Amino acid sequence: MSTWPGRLILTDHALYFEALRVVSYDKPKRYDLSEDLKQIVKPELTGPWGTRLFDKAVLYKSISLSEPVVVEFPELKGHGRRDYWLAIIREILYAHRFINKFQIKGMERNEALSKAVLGILRVQALQEITSTAPLKCETLLMFNLCDQLPGGDLILEALANMSSSQLDRTNSPRSVDGSGMHSVSSLAMVSNLGFVFGGSSSSLSSPSEGGL
């Protein structure tokens, strides 16, 4: 199934697509990124009448869908928009794979998601600063980079062990100046800065949300 035109919205748990109608958008379709549904997100070739001419699309496939979904990102030159969306969708997907694989829960789960979210916001900021030079988005996103690097799985395992150690220290009783020490997750800190994350209704603002 090919989707275009419409509005694509990425959250910290899922991808939503709202097809464009005559005067409004259709009810959004949700493509989950948090559960283990054997998802595949990869670049795809598209073209008229089933031909494979244009390298400007992203394919999403999972066991919950009867057929893959292809989201097209038409542009006159290059495929920078497609590459950007491919990288940030994969970043959220890989973050949840990391969480599910190492069974990370609670505050440490929020920390992992916040790393992915803040990485995407950093890429957005760099795109605005260096609009003329194309960015290799996947090299600027932690979970994307670990997926590509040799031994990246070992890096993620070390990160999971560090998170577990930090959680053990946080849960151990201690006091400073007679008062207990409390840890605030970075996801909560991001929320305090004006961004709303942590639920399926939270969205990454433009350009992660916008019309195709």
Rank of each mutant, 00 (worst) to 15 (best):
S2H: 08
L10A: 14
A19M: 09
A19P: 06
V22Y: 15
S24K: 03
K27M: 01
P28F: 11
P28A: 00
D36F: 06
V41C: 04
K42N: 07
P48E: 05
W49C: 11
T51E: 07
R52T: 12
D55W: 05
V58W: 06
K61N: 15
K61G: 04
E75I: 07
E75N: 09
L76K: 11
L76Q: 15
L76F: 15
K77G: 00
I88T: 10
R90E: 02
E91F: 04
A95P: 15
H96P: 09
I99A: 04
Q103G: 06
K105F: 02
M107F: 01
N110Q: 06
E111S: 09
E111N: 04
A112N: 09
L113I: 04
Q124E: 08
Q127S: 09
T130R: 02
L135W: 06
E138C: 10
C146W: 02
L149F: 05
L149Q: 07
G152D: 14
E157D: 06
S163Y: 06
S175E: 13
S175M: 10
V176D: 06
S183V: 14
A188P: 03
N192L: 12
L193G: 05
G198L: 00
S201A: 08
S203Q: 13
L204F: 03
S205N: 12
E209F: 03
